[in-house]
């Protein structure tokens, strides 16, 4: 209650928060500094955060001689395609679950909830056989299809909650004016749901951008590698060349961190508002 007391407690809290934030950030800073170090300064004692000589060689090597530009492009294509398609089809399904009664609805919904609980990885073996039989291994389209399947349950679940809370009056008005449900969906439901859609889009994008295990299993051709497998393979090939490995890693995380930092207010808001009136 007393001012000095409050000041003291705030100081302590800030000290604790700063300590915690340092623990979170120091590994990143160390990675950043290592990426700018030459091979001879890797794993020196004592470790240093400021490279003695800053070199861009690691980035040049990763980008020029190791095809990282291509892997970046592959990841981007897969993540964007997954996000766009998943958003639309999940929203359609969610709308149907929120607004209509139809045969099989409950079973479908429970199946979705069930798969939400199960590890995606448990499906990797049958998925492998299925995708092989469809001739979709070694193929970005095969990645997208499986990522779609992995992302639809959660997206549908989140969006359905949001759609149930949307007011129906506008929709009724459209129907009375002779509009179809398709019109309602695109003209009313989707625009009203921008915050929820943004949240879902960001999560889906992150998932597809970072996914490792399925890509590792499905892609054999180096031309179709995505960034996570490229980085893991890179580590296997250059086990001691940490500067190179981290220069490659920064390639993968920089856009994600940029997107997160610039959209975060929007997306935290989206997450919390996603359930307004739910």
């Amino acid at each position: 209650m007393l001012r000095p007391q409050k000041f003291l407690s705030h100081t302590l809290l800030y000290a604790a928060l700063i300590f915690g934030a340092l623990v979170m950030v120091i590994p990143f800073l160390y990675m950043l500094s290592t990426a700018f170090k030459g091979q001879i300064y890797i794993l020196e004692v004592p470790p240093s955060f400021l490279p003695k000589e800053i070199t861009l060689q690691n980035f040049v090597d990763a980008w020029q001689s190791n095809n990282f530009a291509r892997y970046f492009g592959n990841s981007l294509m897969v993540a964007l395609a997954t996000t766009a398609v998943s958003l639309v089809v999940s929203a359609m399904l969610s709308y149907a679950l929120a607004r209509f009664d139809f045969f099989g609805k409950n079973i479908l919904f429970y199946a979705i909830l069930l798969t939400l609980m199960l590890p995606n990885l448990m499906l990797i073996i049958p998925e492998f056989v299925l995708v092989k039989n469809l001739g979709l291994r070694n193929n970005l389209f095969g990645l997208v299809l499986v990522y779609l399947a992995f992302s639809i349950p959660l997206n549908t679940f989140l969006l359905r909650g949001f759609f149930e809370g949307l007011p129906r009056e506008l929709e009724e008005a459209v129907l009375i004016d002779g509009g179809s449900y398709w019109t309602i969906f695109w003209r009313i439901v989707m625009p009203l749901s921008t915050p929820a859609l943004a949240t879902v889009a960001i999560f889906t994008f992150l998932f597809a951008w970072d996914e490792f295990t399925w890509a590792l299993t499905a892609i054999d051709d180096p031309l179709w590698r995505t960034l996570p497998i490229a980085i893991a393979t890179f580590h296997g090939e250059h086990a001691t060349q940490w500067g190179l490995v981290f220069a490659a890693s920064l390639t993968a995380i920089a856009p994600v961190i940029f997107v997160f930092v610039s959209l975060q207010r929007y997306f935290v808001k989206g997450l919390t508002q996603g359930a307004v009136r739910g």
Partner: peptide, 9 residues
């Protein structure tokens, strides 16, 4: 509305 997602799923 259900079909595309349900098919993939």
């Amino acid at each position: 509305f259900v079909l595309p997602a349900a098919l993939v799923f």
